[in-house]
Every structure is written in C-alpha cells, then in structure tokens.
C-alpha cells in the first residue's frame, strides 16, 4: 500500500515539476520566472522527502534543509535585484 502511494506521489510531484519548468521557460515576465524557480525548489524538497521515505534513509533531510534555506535566500536576492537594481547596497 505504501509503495503504491509513493508511486502515485512520485508521479504527481514529477508532473508538478514539469508544469513549473514550463512556466519557468515561458515567463512571460521576470517575476514569473523567479516565482517558478521558487516553486521549483519547494517541489524538489517534496521529491527529496519522498525519496527519503522510499529509500528509508534520513540522509536526504540534510539536503532538504539546505535547499530550503538556500532557495529562500536566492528568491530574496533576486527580488531585491528587481526592486533596487542591486543586491548589496
């Protein structure tokens, strides 16, 4: 039962990643692309968590935590760049 649920979940999250990638490539504006990148990293956290459950390894969490932190900083930096035209003032 768990493996079926995991298979469904892998499919859904991969589809989500594909939709996000489509938005990332299509745009049309810069904020759209940043939003897509932001969503991409949250989706990849979901994928890592699923992999962790599937492979029964808690190691994937370290990667998930790192992605969560770095992704947020990246989004903020990109937004700052759009707002001010510079990251470090």
């Amino acid at each position: 039962m768990l493996s079926t649920a995991l298979a469904i979940a892998f499919g859904l999250v991969t589809a989500a990643l594909a939709l996000t990638l489509w938005r990332l490539l299509r745009g049309p504006d810069k904020p759209d692309r940043i939003l897509a990148l932001d969503t991409l990293y949250v989706n990849s956290i979901a994928l890592l968590v699923l992999l962790g459950i599937h492979l029964d390894s808690a190691l994937y969490f370290e990667a998930a935590i790192l992605i969560a932190m770095m992704g947020f900083v990246g989004t903020v930096a990109l937004c700052k760049y759009l707002l001010r035209g510079d990251i470090i003032e």
């Binding site: 039962m1 768990l2 649920a5 979940a9 892998f10 859904l12 489509w22 759209d32 969503t39």
Partner: peptide, 27 residues
C-alpha cells in the same frame, strides 16, 4: 494507511500548486 493518505494528499496539493502556477492568467 495513515502514511499513504498523508503522502497522496501532500503530493496532490504540491501538484495543484504547480497547476495554479501554470494555468492562472496573470502574475
């Protein structure tokens, strides 16, 4: 069963979020 339901619901919401990103009309 609980675990499976939580996993499927979680994946479903993740998918819906990205679906919203893909099909909504403006930023």
């Amino acid at each position: 069963t609980t675990l499976s339901i939580l996993i499927v619901i979680g994946a479903l919401f993740t998918f819906i979020g990205s679906l919203g990103l893909a099909r909504m009309p403006d930023f």
